[in-house]
Design a protein around this nucleic acid. Structure first.
Lengths: 156, 156
DNA sequence: CTCTATTGATCAGCATACTGATCATCAGTA
DNA sequence: TACTGATGATCAGTATGCTGATCAATAGAG
């Protein structure tokens, strides 16, 4: 374990580093300017209209304090709107705009290309196995981070 | 691929998120205050005395602009010293201090415990396979990030 | 030897992530 | 209904990572 190259933690950092670089590169080549985090938030808002920020954070496993800035930037780009909830005046309902929907549709092929590119060194079977193992490790460690994934989508 | 939970990029982010949380938790429980990034830098400096910052960055795949701040913090904690090089006045030679060596030795068990904890959902065989697959994917994507890993340790 | 291109380090600026705090609001209870 | 605890959102502060720029110093070509 003394070798850094065999430590899961180091490999996790490195793989994530490459994944982000590939994502940004593919998305920019497609003519868009969205980060992985912004894309995931936009996609989740599209699939869950009027979701509040805390629930959204749980869906994509973001820290609640991170989501504020992410939504700020999506709103500033005109891709989502943040409106006060009538039911609970503390919360903001998030909605994707028409422009956001168009951007999401247009960008998705680049995102999928990025997913393939970041595992280009692996066979299809190896890729599936990597996905399975990461899912399993993540499921076991879900509650160890401050921003665990939370199921229970829209029914709040 | 429409499902986020099957995208390598999302899983990479999530696994890294858990890995960092586990690392910080174990290290703090052991009575230390070091981030994963600071630990890797400290260990690399210990193994490569008088290394310069650029070479160090290549060894652990950090961006060169990131390393400046990391070394700042290690130096501020008294764990390393940064001294001008006689050979090349542009570069700074990095050396671990006695205190840094003691901290490194004392913290290593916690770091290794963290490596095991972050894959606690996997069997030993699965862990080895996850490591192998991440290594392979990373090797193929090494040059896709701004901070690739560079071999060629001390002989500059 | 001089000029140019490169290199080591740093900086400003931006985007995640997190810790811990605050504020307004809400829900449930006495 | 008044109070207490919980909750949604935000903020200040810190630490990665990155883009792109700058500056001093070095190396290589001619």
């Amino acid at each position: 374990m003394a070798e850094m190259q065999e430590m899961p933690g180091h490999l996790a950092r490195r793989f994530q580093q490459i994944a982000v670089a590939v994502f940004l590169s593919e998305v920019e080549a497609a003519g868009f300017d969205l980060t992985p985090v912004q894309y995931a938030a936009l996609a989740a808002i599209a699939a869950n209209p009027a979701i509040d920020q805390i629930t959204l954070a749980g869906l994509i496993a973001y820290d609640r304090t991170t989501i504020t800035g992410v939504i700020d930037r999506l709103a500033q780009k005109g891709l989502v709107v943040r409106q006060a909830s009538a039911r609970d005046r503390r919360s903001r309902e998030l909605l994707i705009t028409d422009e956001g929907r168009r951007a999401l549709d247009a960008i998705t092929p680049a995102v999928e290309a990025a997913q393939r590119l970041m595992v280009r060194g692996l066979t299809k079977a190896e890729t599936n196995e990597l996905i399975r193992l990461m899912q399993k490790a993540i499921a076991a460690g879900n509650d160890l981070s401050r921003a665990p994934l939370r199921e229970g989508t829209a029914e709040r």
